[in-house]
Structures are given as C-alpha cells and as structure tokens.
C-alpha cells in the first residue's frame, strides 16, 4: 500500500506529473475575482470565504481526470486489479495521494490568497480549518467520479457534471464554516457536519469507487 502511495507521489512530483497546476489555477481564479466584481475591499472581504472555497473546489476538480485515467491508459489498473492489494485499498490510496498533491497545497495556499481578497482576520483560522477538513472529502468523492468515467474517451466534462452535484453538501458546510468564522459567528454545527461528511465519505465511498472500477475494467 505504501509502495502505491510513494509511486503516485513520485509520479506527481516528477516532470509532467502535473503537481502545482491545481495550485496555479487556484491562484489565477482568485486573482480574476476582483477584476470581475470590482476592487472595493468591503465587497471582497464579504465574498472572500466563498470565493476561496469555490476556487479550491474547482482546482481540485481540474486534476481529477488524471487521477485514474493515466493508470487506465498504460494498463496499470488491470495489473493493480489482479494484484494482492484489494481494489478498495488501491482507490483509497489514490485518493490520499490526490489529496496530498492537490488538496493539501490548496489548504496551505488559501491564507495567502485570503490576503489578496481582504479576508477578515478571524476568518483565516476557520478558512484553513474548513479546507483542511473538507478537501479530503473532495478527493474521495472525486475518485468516485474518476472511477465512473475512467473508460470514456472524453470523460472530463462528464466527470465535472457528475462530481459537482456530489460536492454540494461539502461546499455548503465548508463555506458556511469559513463565512461564519470570518464574521465571528459560532461555527461548531457546520464544522461538525463537514467533519461528518468527510468521515463518512472516506469510510464508505471507496467501496462504491472500487465497485464501479471493477465494472469499468470488465
């Protein structure tokens, strides 16, 4: 299992692995927002938590179609499916690798982008906290979407269409935590709901992902 994780991390960091693309996208989207809505700092600080959450979500989504498709094309998935490692474990590891290479950098970059959008000071902690808890769910849900569309030639757009509705609860609770935190309101309830969603998806969704992957490998 660790071998698979290390391999995926190595692949991501080597040339052409696409590490940092999601991060760059996150940066660019955030920079574009003031151009679209105007530079008034009061407006920006109001919408900052939501914009940063949406930006992180889109950056995450962008990297999903490479998650399984490369392994599918070169035949690694066939070989992994016949290996002693259960496919459930394999997809969980791949989701973890995705989170480490995409989700975690987004979490770490978010406060700096928060400065650009004039995020209120109490909001920084809650923004990082909510992203830290929410992004693993986005990786796991995204892995399910990637497993559904892995065999398709032009699966990228379909992948977004399938995954985005599944992101709705995570986005709602996650952005709610960040928004409430920024305005100094109580954050416990949405934070617990967010953590619950993340825990439940990590525990259950890999079974669905492995099941659809087996169907696609047939």
């Amino acid at each position: 299992m660790i071998a698979l994780l290390l391999r995926d991390l190595k692949l991501a960091f080597r040339a052409g692995g696409g590490f940092g693309l999601g991060l760059a996208f996150f940066l660019i989207v955030t920079v574009m927002v003031p151009f679209a809505v105007g530079p008034q700092s009061s407006l920006l600080s109001t919408i900052a938590p939501g914009v940063l959450w949406l930006g992180a979500l889109l950056a995450c989504l962008l990297s999903l179609d490479r998650l399984l498709a490369l392994d599918w094309e070169d035949g690694s998935l066939d070989l992994l499916a016949t290996a002693p490692l259960p496919l459930e474990a394999a997809v969980s590891i791949k989701a973890l690798a995705h989170w480490l290479t995409t989700g975690l950098p987004l979490v770490l970059a978010a406060p700096f982008l928060g400065v650009l959008l004039n995020l209120p000071v109490p909001g920084f902690f809650w923004l990082v906290m909510s992203l830290l808890i929410g992004t693993p769910a986005m990786s796991v849900i995204g892995t399910f979407g990637a497993a559904l569309t892995v065999g398709l030639k032009r699966g990228g757009l379909l992948l977004s269409l399938l995954v985005l509705p599944l992101y709705v609860p995570t986005l709602i609770f996650g952005a709610e935590v960040a928004r409430r935190g920024a305005t100094g309101m109580e954050t416990q309830t949405p934070l617990l709901m967010l953590a619950g969603i993340t825990a439940a998806t990590i525990a259950l969704l890999p079974f669905a992902s492995a099941a659809v992957l087996r169907i696609n490998l047939r």
Partner: peptide, 27 residues
C-alpha cells in the same frame, strides 16, 4: 456497463441528494 454504472451512481447520488437537502435547509 451503462446499467451497472448508472445504478451505482443512482444509489450514491440518492445519499448525496438527501445530504444536500439537509445542507440546503441549514444554509
């Protein structure tokens, strides 16, 4: 294959639709 995949999507989607319903109510 389409029947299998859409069926799993329907099951998973139902859970998430229900979750969204609660999330939206909260929101």
């Amino acid at each position: 294959t389409a029947a299998d995949l859409t069926s799993v999507l329907c099951l998973v989607g139902s859970v998430f639709a229900l979750l969204s319903r609660y999330a939206v109510n909260f929101w």
